[in-house]
Amino acid sequence: SKDTIRINGIDIDVKDLHEEWKRLVEEALKRGDEELAIELLERALKE
């Protein structure tokens, strides 16, 4: 798994994120759902 995830052309540092969150965000991006990916990231970062 990578340490960054690219959303809207912005590389976001996710190395401190739990693997499960990372996977969910990557799944959302694979489906092209950037809005969901951002929402998941925000939730993950609050934890």
Score class of each variant (00 low, 15 high):
Leu41Glu: 00
Gly32Gln: 04
Arg23Leu: 07
Asp33Ser: 05
Lys2Ala: 14
His18Val: 08
Ala28Arg: 00
Ala37Pro: 00
Asp16Trp: 15
Leu45Gly: 06
Val14Pro: 03
Gly9Cys: 05
Ile38Trp: 15
Glu39Met: 15
Arg31Cys: 07
Glu39Gly: 07
Glu35Ala: 14
Glu26Trp: 15
Ile10Asp: 04
Lys22Thr: 06
Ser1Pro: 11
Asp11Phe: 06
Glu27Met: 15
Ile38Val: 10
Gly32Met: 04
Ala44Gly: 13
Ile7Gly: 01
Leu24Cys: 07
Ser1Arg: 08
Val25Asn: 00
Arg6Pro: 03
Asn8Tyr: 05
Leu24Trp: 08
Lys30Pro: 00
Glu19Val: 10
Thr4Lys: 06
Lys30Val: 09
Glu27Tyr: 06
Leu36Phe: 08
Gly9Ala: 03
Ala37Met: 03
Glu47Leu: 11
Val25Glu: 00
Asp3Lys: 05
Glu39Arg: 15
Val14Arg: 02
His18Pro: 14
Lys15Arg: 13
Leu45Asn: 10
Glu47Val: 09
Glu20Gly: 13
Val14Thr: 05
Leu29Gln: 02
Val25Ile: 15
Glu19Lys: 10
Val14Asp: 02
Lys2Ile: 13
Glu34Gln: 12
Glu27Val: 04
Leu40Asn: 00
Lys22Asn: 02
Glu20Thr: 15
Leu36Cys: 08
Glu27His: 05
Arg43Glu: 07
Glu39Val: 14
Val14Ile: 15
Leu41Phe: 05
Ala37Gly: 02
Lys2Asp: 10
Glu47Tyr: 06
Gly9Glu: 04
Ile7Glu: 01
Glu35Ile: 13
Asp11Leu: 08
Ile7Ala: 02
Ala44Phe: 13
Asp13Gly: 05
Lys2Thr: 13
Leu45Phe: 13
Glu19Thr: 09
Arg31Ala: 14
Asp11Ser: 07
Glu34Pro: 12
Lys46Pro: 03
Glu26Met: 15
Glu19Tyr: 15
Lys15Tyr: 11
Glu34Asn: 13
Asn8Trp: 03
Ile10Thr: 08
Ile5Thr: 02
Gly9Arg: 03
Asp3Trp: 01
Ala37Val: 06
Leu24Glu: 05
Trp21Glu: 03
Arg43Gln: 12
Gly9Val: 02
Ala44Gln: 03
Ala28Cys: 04
Ala37Tyr: 02
Leu40Phe: 06
Glu27Pro: 00
Asp16Gln: 11
Glu35Gln: 14
Lys22Ile: 15
Arg43Thr: 06
Asp33Cys: 07
Asp33Ala: 05
Ala44Ser: 04
Gly32Glu: 03
Lys15Pro: 04
Gly9Leu: 04
Leu29Ala: 03
Asp11Val: 09
Ile38Asn: 06
Glu42Asn: 14
Val25His: 00
Ile10His: 09
Thr4Val: 13
Arg43Trp: 09
Asn8His: 11
Leu40Ala: 01
Glu27Ser: 07
Leu45Val: 08
Ile5Asn: 02
Glu20Met: 15
Glu34Asp: 11
Asp11Arg: 04
Glu35Lys: 15
Ile7His: 03
Gly9His: 04
Ile38Ser: 10
Lys2Arg: 12
Arg23His: 06
Ile5Phe: 08
Lys30Ser: 14
Asn8Thr: 03
Glu35Asn: 14
Ile5Asp: 01
Val14Met: 10
Lys22Gly: 04
Lys46Met: 12
Thr4Met: 09
Ile12Asn: 02
Ile5Trp: 04
Leu45Tyr: 10
Glu39Trp: 15
Asp13Cys: 07
Thr4His: 07
Glu20Trp: 13
Ala44Trp: 13
Asp33Gln: 10
Asp16Pro: 05
Lys46Arg: 14
Leu40Met: 07
Glu39Phe: 14
Lys22His: 04
Ile10Asn: 07
Glu19Phe: 14
Lys22Val: 15
Glu35His: 12
Leu24Val: 05
Asp33Gly: 03
Arg6Tyr: 07
Ala28Asn: 00
Thr4Ser: 08
Asp13Pro: 06
Asp3Glu: 10
Ala44Leu: 07
Glu42Cys: 15
Glu27Leu: 14
Leu41Met: 06
Ser1Cys: 06
Lys46Ile: 09
Glu34Val: 14
Ile12Leu: 06
Leu29Asn: 01
Asn8Ser: 06
Glu39His: 13
Lys30His: 12
Arg43Cys: 07
Ile10Cys: 08
Leu29Cys: 03
Glu34Met: 13
Glu47Phe: 09
Glu26Tyr: 15
Asp16Phe: 13
Arg6Lys: 11
Asp3Cys: 11
Leu29Tyr: 05
Arg43Gly: 04
Glu20Lys: 15
Ile12Cys: 05
Leu45Trp: 12
Ile5Glu: 01
His18Tyr: 05
Ala44Thr: 01
Lys2Glu: 11
Glu20Arg: 15
His18Cys: 11
Asp16Tyr: 14
Lys30Trp: 14
Glu19Arg: 09
Asp13Glu: 07
Asp13Ala: 06
Leu29Val: 07
Lys2Val: 13
Arg23Lys: 10
Ile12Asp: 00
Lys15Ile: 06
Lys15Leu: 06
Ser1Glu: 12
Leu36Gln: 10
Lys2Tyr: 15
Asp11Glu: 10
Leu40Pro: 00
Asp3Met: 03
Val25Lys: 00
Ile12Met: 08
Lys22Cys: 03
